[in-house]
Amino acid sequence: MIIQKQKAYENIEEMLAPYQKVFVAGCTECATACKTGGEDEVAEMKERLEAAGKTVTGTAIFDSACLRGEVREVSREHQEQIEAADAILTLFCGAGVQTVGNYHEDTPVVPGVDALFVGETIRAGKYTEQCQACGDCLLDVTGGICPLTRCAKALLNGPCGGYTEDGKCEVDPDTDCAWLLIFERLKTRGQLDKIRETQAAKDHSDHHPPQTYKWARPKKKKVKPTA
């Protein structure tokens, strides 16, 4: 999930200052789970903006704000409200902000949310970063713990000298040293050999932003009609 948090309201207010009429959009996916742009947050934002003297022309919750077809469909349903607005306030991650912005090229889109990372929900309201979307997963080698993400120095060949006796990272006493976690897990499994082999410097050549990805669809085999 894309872990995210709403920007400070003062910040949102500042960005919206030039616009009187606003359309507010949320998303049922990560934004709902992170309580940044679900139904409740969109309704709350509408109320708050109206109390501040803005005109909210309408609201919508996309099933997925990062899905072009969905954005197109929902936007058509709300066409009049969106056309009446001076700006669209989005309460979801940047992928959604840009999907919406690409469809509504003439209307300014104001981001009300900061996307933080790809992570795990420990419980509602508590999240931890787990994945860099690096494009070359090595979790098989490292016992299912990503050192690229969870080691502060993204080390791929073992720990630095900066772990404390209680197994924490010198950078943050609340964070476990990822390499000690990896080491202990693989030791328990009898798989330490996996990390004895040196990991070559990571090959980023296929993963420079901006990336695109397209399914490689196998060609359909022609099937001869059976007699």
Partner: peptide, 13 residues
């Protein structure tokens, strides 16, 4: 460092 085994492992590398 405590534990020292991860240090040795990296030293070998």
């Amino acid at each position: 460092a405590e534990p020292v085994e991860p240090q040795i492992l990296k030293l070998e590398k």
